[in-house]
């Protein structure tokens, strides 16, 4: 079962790109399913699976915990990464909602 997952640590450019994408506003005029993601900071214990497996959505902060945590829209091309992060958090700290 090949998954084609890539392993990398988010580089500085990636972190900036993620931050730029994390404007909490809701894109206008979307007609497809809208996926939103956030992290329960009280539950996150810094296992690091999310930024390992969803490197375009999360990166490690200076303490090794996932960042960013606030609710935001997941771009359609990153939906798979978002589901992967959800599935792999040992603390069930990632909250993913899909609406139409």
């Amino acid at each position: 079962m090949a998954t084609g997952w890539k392993y990398r640590t988010a580089e500085a450019e990636t972190a900036e790109a993620i931050d730029r994408r994390c404007e909490p506003r809701r894109p206008l005029g979307l007609r497809f399913a809208l996926m939103r993601i956030r992290v329960e900071t009280e539950l996150c214990q810094g296992h690091g699976r999310c930024y390992m497996l969803a490197p375009d959505l999360f990166y490690a902060d200076d303490d090794g915990y996932c960042h960013p945590t606030g609710e935001r829209t997941v771009p359609a091309e990153l939906a798979d990464q978002a589901r992967r992060a959800l599935m792999n958090c040992p603390e069930d700290a990632i909250i993913l909602t899909e609406e139409t």
Binding site: M1, A2, T3, Q45, G46, H47, G48, R49, M52, L53, R84, M87, N88, C89, P90, E91
Partner: peptide, 20 residues
């Protein structure tokens, strides 16, 4: 290639392994 990497070899909760 296992999809789930939700293992707790480093423990879980507030005492999760500091050196992981």
């Amino acid at each position: 290639d296992r999809e789930s990497k939700k293992h707790i070899a480093f423990g879980a909760g507030v005492h999760r392994c500091l050196g992981s």
